[in-house]
Amino acid sequence: MTASPPFPRRGSERSRLRGPAAGFLAAVLVAGVVVAVSAAAVPGSARAGVVVGGAVLAVLCGGAVAVAVHGVRSARWHRAEAESMSGDADRLLRERDGLARELGSERHRLTDEYTRRIAARADEHAHHVATLSEEGTLRIAALEDGHERLLAKLSEEHAGRIATLGE
């Protein structure tokens, strides 16, 4: 069994019961007046049955009115709560959309920054490779030149030894 919904409190727990209790009391009083008038119009021997039946009817009517008042108040409370939740949901959706836009712009900014860094590193790498290639080419040329001089020197020495041996 579920408990009745919590109504907004104005001061005490009695404020929740005030509406249904007032409805119950009003219905019982009206039914009591109708029963009293009806009992006065009925002969004495039937009065007891009319009063007892009227009292039961008055309590049942009062209960029905109390339940109806509680239902109306509960429906109002639930409607207000639903409107509040709907407003909260709308606010949260707007916040989510704002955050999504913010995230998208941040992602775009970071992507651009990353792209710039990668391009700068690629340029640095290309420059470094070109420098190393140029240095390598110069070294190879220097080695080839040194090799040719050494070969020429050795060829002269070799030719000089052969000439010395041939004498």
Score class of each variant (00 low, 15 high):
Leu25Gly: 08
Arg161Pro: 01
His70Leu: 13
His78Gly: 02
Arg73Glu: 04
Arg101Trp: 04
Asp97Phe: 06
Cys61Glu: 04
Gly136Tyr: 00
Ala41Leu: 15
Leu132Tyr: 00
Glu148Cys: 09
Glu124Lys: 07
Arg109Leu: 14
Val67Arg: 14
Thr2Leu: 13
Arg107Val: 15
Gly104Thr: 11
His125Asn: 12
Ala3Ile: 06
His147Asn: 11
Phe7Ala: 04
Pro43Val: 10
Leu150Ala: 13
Arg9Trp: 00
Leu17Trp: 13
Phe24Trp: 06
Val35Ile: 07
Gly63Phe: 08
Ala27Tyr: 02
Ala122Tyr: 02
Asp145Gly: 14
Ser84Thr: 13
Thr115His: 08
Ala22Ser: 09
Val42Trp: 00
His147Val: 08
Ala119Phe: 03
His70Ile: 01
Ala152His: 09
Val51Asp: 01
Val72Leu: 13
Asp123Leu: 14
Leu57Gln: 04
Ala100Val: 14
Ala36His: 00
Glu13Met: 09
Gly62Ser: 08
Val51Lys: 03
Ser84Asp: 02
Arg16Glu: 06
Ser105Lys: 05
Glu95His: 06
Ala100Lys: 07
Glu102Asp: 13
Ser155Leu: 09
Ala40His: 06
Gly136Ser: 12
Ser45Glu: 10
Arg101Cys: 04
Glu144Asp: 08
His78Phe: 11
Leu165Tyr: 12
Glu144Met: 09
Arg94Asp: 07
Ala46Trp: 03
Thr131Cys: 03
Arg16Met: 05
Gly136Phe: 00
Cys61Asn: 05
Pro6Lys: 13
Val28Asn: 02
Ser15Gln: 07
Arg73Ile: 08
Gly146Val: 07
Leu143Arg: 12
Glu13Tyr: 07
Thr115Val: 13
Glu106Thr: 14
Pro20Asp: 03
Leu138Ser: 13
Ala80Phe: 00
Glu124Tyr: 04
Ala31Ser: 15
Val30Gln: 02
Glu167Arg: 15
Leu60Asn: 05
